[in-house]
Nucleic acid binder design. Structure first.
Lengths: 217, 217
DNA sequence: CAACACTTAATTGTCGACAATTTAACCTAG
DNA sequence: CTAGGTTAAATTGTCGACAATTAAGTGTTG
């Protein structure tokens, strides 16, 4: 789906670290010792530093000069802030997708939805995980806005996923989400930019409220 | 206004490089040779690489493995994409500012506008440059959303400024922009999130159209 | 016993050298 | 003269060591 091939060893390390952080193998808030990582992953500190720099670009770690890097801490306010940004950017993505997606791409999007809807009947977890992600990715890519794609795909989505994984969000909202997705695609199909943006924003707002209630448990 | 102090030599180099790129001292699209920069700025290549990494985080340079880094190229489509993202994010910032700014902060914002309006009477350039930037900064900071602040202040704004500087945008739109700013602050003062977002989005849309016409000269 | 200063250990920042890869220049073959 | 391949130069990637800074520990003094 999204080919992200590693060329240098810094690439490989970055991808592994990012995954370990998102999945919680390296817990949120933990200090990242360069020496420790260097021996753990069997690469020089230069590679480690390069990797940490890139993680900082993704907002997954925070660095302070002469002190070091820590994995970001997850908090309720952090989640709210993240979803506000996401609502804004993905709303714009939906608007631009309605403007720029080809008819073929829209057809594929319809096909994707029905496919996911049918498979969700059996094991409902699949849709929530991969299906939802896939849907949002296609909209974002459909915007054809490189800047927007960068921000969301290489930045925000990993943080969103980190919240989802570490707060244990696999929950329901499957059937209702499907309907919301369908309405969004219809709006895009009708080239109704205004509606597409509005529906996407509400969809994310609902999603956020859903997570927030779980957070206060 | 915004204290961005450099601690390490990599910090200093980063700030200088960023400035040189935005101001066009290092022209858009140019290759950044590590050796060359290393001798020019009298620091080791490690520092140069660190600086380039951070510039990449700002989307001011693009890197390819085993090939090197180049300053981003300025294009019409790039500008449009940038402004779409900016419209989206700053619209959200205005909405959140209407929700989170204190009454005192709003008062200061009003004061800032009238002050800038009076000084603009004489030398009109001042308002467009510093005043406009200052206004937008305050709104963004008023959102109290760290994620949003990061994206805009440390990312997009430098690119926007790069476009402005290198395409020679000092132009008019002063008086009309003032009125638009005033309306936005009024909406924020009334805690009307919906209107504040809408007005900010239109304000940026106008600004973009204004620049776009100049671009096609 | 608390607070401050000093010393020491650990961590990050910076450097120069070597390895791996890419780019170019050149040469050869068709 | 062009196309392809080979070698050489230049550039980026990686490494280990040293310098600078921070954090921890220790002791001293009020």
């Amino acid at each position: 789906m999204l080919v992200e091939q590693a060329i240098t060893s810094a690439d490989k390390l970055f991808l592994q670290l990012r995954n370990d952080i998102v999945e919680g193998v390296i817990p949120a808030g933990q200090k990242l010792s360069e020496n420790e990582l260097s021996t753990t992953y069997q690469v020089s500190r230069a590679v480690i530093r390069e990797g940490i720099n890139r993680l900082e670009s993704c907002h997954l770690v925070e660095r302070r000069a002469n002190v070091g890097a820590r994995v970001v801490a997850l908090s309720a306010t952090g989640l709210v802030e993240l979803y506000d940004v996401r609502e804004s950017l993905e709303g714009m993505a939906a608007r631009l997708a309605a403007r720029h997606m080809s008819d073929d791409e829209i057809d594929e999007l319809f096909a994707l939805l029905t496919e996911h809807h049918s498979t969700a009947k059996d094991g409902e977890t699949y849709y929530q995980e991969a299906g939802d992600v896939d849907f949002h990715y296609r909209i974002v890519l459909g915007s054809k806005n490189q800047q927007l794609i960068q921000f969301l795909v290489n930045g925000i989505y990993h943080l969103v996923r980190m919240y989802r994984v570490q707060l244990g969000m696999a929950g329901p909202r499957v059937s209702t989400a499907y309907d919301e997705h369908l309405q969004i695609v219809k709006a895009i199909s009708n080239r109704d930019e205004e509606l597409a943006e509005m529906l996407m924003r509400r969809h994310i707002l609902y999603s956020r409220n859903n997570i927030q209630t779980k957070l206060s448990d």
